[in-house]
Design a binder for these strands. Sequence first.
DNA 1: GCGAGTGATGGCAGCTACTGCCATCACATA
DNA 2: TATGTGATGGCAGTAGCTGCCATCACTCGC
Lengths: 188, 188
Amino acid sequence: MSRWEPNARGRLEKAALELYSERGFEQATAAEIAARAGLAERTFFRHFADKREVLFGGAGELQELLVHKVANAPDSLAPIDAVAAALEGLGAMFEQRREFSRQRQSVIAANAELQERELIKLAKLSAAVADVLRRRGVADPAASLAAEAGIAVFKITFQRWIDETNHPDFGQLVRESLAELKAVTAGE
Amino acid sequence: MSRWEPNARGRLEKAALELYSERGFEQATAAEIAARAGLAERTFFRHFADKREVLFGGAGELQELLVHKVANAPDSLAPIDAVAAALEGLGAMFEQRREFSRQRQSVIAANAELQERELIKLAKLSAAVADVLRRRGVADPAASLAAEAGIAVFKITFQRWIDETNHPDFGQLVRESLAELKAVTAGE
DNA sequence: GCGAGTGATGGCAGCTACTGCCATCACATA
DNA sequence: TATGTGATGGCAGTAGCTGCCATCACTCGC
């Protein structure tokens, strides 16, 4: 494996996840990751803005997917239900890479800097969802709040999906979490 | 102003906010901040874990305050209402430092790394609120969801409070945002 | 008053993340 | 075969951050 092997980016992502798992995020240097991928450190930073970003290559696709699903949800659905329906549709994608997701999440859970990066990705997701809700005609601050609430449902759902040992259905967990949220915010 | 002047930490916080405002977070070095505070770079890193943390000295107090207020909210209040009541009680604290808050928030808004730090502080706030809700007898995932929803209300409220030019009342904004959230999550 | 102890500070060496700049390489195309 | 293009490597340099040790101001027991 040397220069001009295909899929340098993918090799870097794989090498990084392995090294971060083996010895922790802080103990792995960018040079080591690059070496394991058969590349130079300089090349690592050409593919990824920093050491953390290598774990978040999928964030863009996830956002596009979610935005697309919210945009295409039936007009009859209330904002929060449109977001929840879109979240349910993410199940297939996650189920497919469950083991990868678990490993990645365990690395992130062990390091605060990675959690920060994860949180800003979720914040951008929330902002994008708020945008598409506004395009559906939802006014502010309702659009922002519905988006934030939807992402909160996503966070809790994903955590439960990772933690549960008996492979629960992602969509089912979304529906349960949404019902809990509605129960919790029902009042007056 | 030299060695052994009192309140080194406070001087560093002030110098940092000034420098970050004047030329941006990335363009200000830790050595410069320390010099402006009459201290050495080494001393800066003894008071703050990193360059960002110097802007978040108040996060701990805020969390204690909020947790205390949620814990002492009337038992009759539903979880989300207990959190909202606690948030309303934060108004006095913010109104007192409105100009500081605006300047600080403008610095944070201009830099992604600072936003990441802010988000993890809010996540910790949410976790602490979830904890105190559990101590109030709220089960999971309701406790986590109520906390996340409450912090979402806080985020939107704070943003509106900063943006509005005509000095709105913080508590009033909390009540409005909560009402919007309830409207948005009311369903089926 | 005086010496030991304590906590805050400064200085310095060193590692690593990250960047700018330029050379080099593999490949496509004319 | 020449030439352009995009990906890569090498290297120097900056800045964030840490470990280690010396130094300084203050306190307390005597």
